[in-house]
Write a protein that binds this DNA or RNA. Structure first.
Lengths: 212, 212
DNA sequence: TAGATTGTTAATCGATTAACAATC
DNA sequence: TAGATTGTTAATCGATTAACAATC
């Protein structure tokens, strides 16, 4: 895997999964080569930006020819770290947690879901996608045995502080956070990706109201 | 409602819901006034940025004093357009759609959910949150009667092109898009807010793999 | 009045776009 | 070789931060 040493900006990082998706589709559609110009057109970006972005990681193209779709896809696969699966657990198997477990192709996103935790008696013991829902009482024991690195939080804000505390003590290093608890404010040295669906909808509401 | 005429940048728009959330919490906790410096500290921003952002919309503070929490909250409420509810429908009542219907406080985000559509015979006729799931066959009739302006897409990519076509023909002006179909590429004059949960998780995977 | 903090202008920083020499 | 398109440097654009006069 080629790579350069300079720190990659978050703007670039956030575009990588999108490149990966588009390259995958091109590959599936049997497209063999593509120029930055044509990819830019399809993605609604500039050719310049695509070349700049890719060149953060190496030289993947051929002058006068463009990029080999399959090869570039493979490069992104490695850049994104899809070859190693991060062991993960999900906290909260309510509607949202349930939806993620059923919908999200975790393995295809570099994640291996090892455990599901919830405190609702109606859920404990149930099996979702071959994984048995456990009580959060079992959290510490589970972590000792499985060392999850990523925790997916689908729990109410109130439950989050205590749970995050315990997870960090258990060695969890990253959070995919659907709760509204501000993890980064309370824990340093931990990676946090916040998903605020409400903010996304509210921003859209704002734009709708601007229209006319 | 005070406001200025210059076009607001998307960077600012995306921060508005977060301001709104923080102001709400401060208000709930009985905080009466707050300075840009203190709000910045709590939100992990700079005081300069907060003042710049707010001054896109008006002058809400008092020199030497700061901002009145309740008043600023109200201003954001109006700026975000929370006083008018956008009529909306949701397409797809599978796990994700179901989770949104149950979890999302639509009214609190400026949206009124008027209809739910799905094609699964097991779902049609069922009632979720007081709304009866209808077949997509009824879409045109429903739109004629209710004129929804926003469609929430919780459907597979394959079903999206045809459905979006129909929705646009019905006068739908905005999409909250959880499918991977690229609406904006195929329809101009329509607002699209894409939610790519997979991209979010993949970006996190990348960052986890960079750590060490 | 003195102290604090805003609103706003100016300076800086970073990200995007344009240009072009290198080269397939 | 001629044409195309990359990799990369330089120019531009926009967003963030700093500074400070205005003023409560």
């Amino acid at each position: 895997m080629a790579s350069k040493d300079t720190q990659i900006s978050m703007s670039v990082v956030r575009r990588l999964p999108r490149y990966y998706r588009f390259l995958y589709d091109l590959k599936e559609n049997g497209v063999v080569r593509i120029s930055s110009r044509e990819l830019a057109e399809r993605m609604g970006l500039t050719a310049s930006q695509i070349r700049q972005d890719l060149n953060c990681f190496g030289e993947f193209g051929q002058q006068g020819y463009g990029y080999l779709v399959e090869q570039l896809y493979e490069e992104l696969y490695h850049i994104l770290g899809m070859d190693r699966l991060t062991p993960a657990i999900i906290l909260g198997a309510g509607n949202l947690g349930h939806a993620l477990i059923n919908h999200m192709n975790f393995a295809g996103k570099g994640v291996r879901l090892d455990g599901i935790f919830d405190d609702a008696p109606t859920l404990i013991g149930k099996t979702i996608h071959d994984i048995t829902v456990q009580s959060t009482d079992a959290l510490e024991t589970f972590c000792t045995n499985h060392s999850p690195k990523l925790a997916i939080l689908c729990i109410p804000k109130e439950a989050a502080p205590r749970l995050v505390e315990r997870l960090v003590a258990c060695g969890v290093k990253a959070f995919w956070n659907f709760s509204h608890y501000d993890i980064a404010m309370h824990h340093q040295d931990v990676l946090v990706e916040n998903v605020h669906l409400g903010d996304s909808l509210m921003a859209l509401s704002y734009l709708i109201n601007q229209e006319k």
